[in-house]
Computed example of a mutant assay.
Amino acid sequence: MKNTIVSVKWLHKNLNNPDLVILDASQTKTINNTTSNFQGLQIKNARFFDLKNSFSRKDTELPNMLPNPQEFKEECHKLGINKSSKIVVYDNLGIYTSPRVWWLFKTMGHNNIAVLNGGLPAWHKEGFELEPFAKDTYNLGDFEATFHPELVKDIEAIKTNLKTKTAIVIDARSEGRFNGTAPDPRPDLKSGHIPNSINLPYSEVLENGKFKSEKKLTEIFKTLKLDNNPLIFTCGSGITACIIMLACELVSKNPKAVYDGSWTEWASAKDAPIHTKT
């Protein structure tokens, strides 16, 4: 499985592959209270990937932070994930949390993972089988985590980049939150952006719940004038940053990383400068 994204037709055709593991990364709702029409349903034999709890760091108040490799490995074992597993991940909004799971596995050294383009809505639209959500237990897997630190950046790296301007920081939040003209959904945070960062709302790379065509994505990233610069993707809490990172991965070979703490960490830090367009 060499593709970064796969179609629902591809997945349906490969359901009987013994190495295939389907992960359901659906959330009950988003930070903006977006909900799905497919609550309580899953693709047959999918395994629930609990992004908010099992696969986020537990020793921080920041949401969705990358767990350490040992914790990640142990949770993968519980889901029956093996070194040989071919993973397809989806969510119930089409494309929302699934790219975050793609990035997690890439960061932990497992490249045999793809996002289901269009997720559960696209699967249902094709008339493929759904079943009631079921949280099951599995035979322990033998997954091994090999951490790739180059794929993740912390707040100190972002502060350093303010001086060196080595990497281009791309922010996936809405234009209003980026410009400081709309409130942040987390009421204790200011809106605005990291100095010198550029804005690409994640909705811009999607169309009808799927990624836009490679041709359209190429045009989008071409207008940003990225050249060969390293790229750092950020958002509110590290979820939608992975959407635009994956979109960029489809059309660009630039080195890419995610600022894991994202705006929640940056806007909470006393010494982190905030720019607005007001």
Rank of each mutant, 00 (worst) to 15 (best):
M65S: 15
G261F: 00
K52G: 15
N3E: 15
S252Y: 08
A247S: 12
K52F: 01
N139V: 08
F72L: 08
Q27W: 12
C242F: 05
K270L: 13
Y202L: 09
L130F: 09
V115W: 07
F147A: 12
L162H: 02
K190A: 11
K212R: 06
E131T: 15
I220R: 05
N17A: 13
N199A: 04
L41D: 12
Y202C: 08
T4P: 01
L151K: 13
V169W: 10
P69A: 15
T234P: 00
E175L: 00
D19E: 14
I113A: 09
M245V: 00
F133W: 11
L151E: 10
A272D: 02
S191K: 04
S54G: 00
K13T: 07
L104V: 00
F221A: 12
G141T: 02
V89S: 03
P121W: 14
K225T: 04
K159T: 05
T35C: 07
E207G: 06
N112P: 01
E249H: 02
K270P: 15
K190L: 11
P255A: 02
S56M: 13
V88Y: 10
N199E: 03
T35E: 05
F221I: 05
N82Q: 13
L104T: 01
P18L: 01
K225M: 05
Q27T: 13
P195T: 13
E131Q: 15
D184H: 07
A267N: 02
R177C: 13
G192N: 06
K29V: 02
L206V: 08
T164V: 04
D271A: 02
T107Y: 04
A267G: 14
S237M: 08
I220D: 15
H77G: 02
N196R: 09
P187E: 01
V6E: 09
A167F: 03
K86F: 05
L79G: 15
K270H: 14
S54C: 02
G109L: 10
H148R: 10
L217N: 07
T278W: 01
N92H: 03
G261P: 01
K44H: 11
K212M: 03
A145S: 14
D227R: 14
R186D: 03
K106V: 03
K165L: 14
K212I: 02
R177K: 13
N117T: 00
A247Q: 09
P185I: 04
I274R: 10
A25C: 00
L20T: 14
W10Y: 10
L130Q: 06
L189V: 06
K153P: 03
P187L: 01
I244L: 07
L151Q: 08
L140G: 09
C248A: 10
F178H: 07
G176N: 05
S26Y: 15
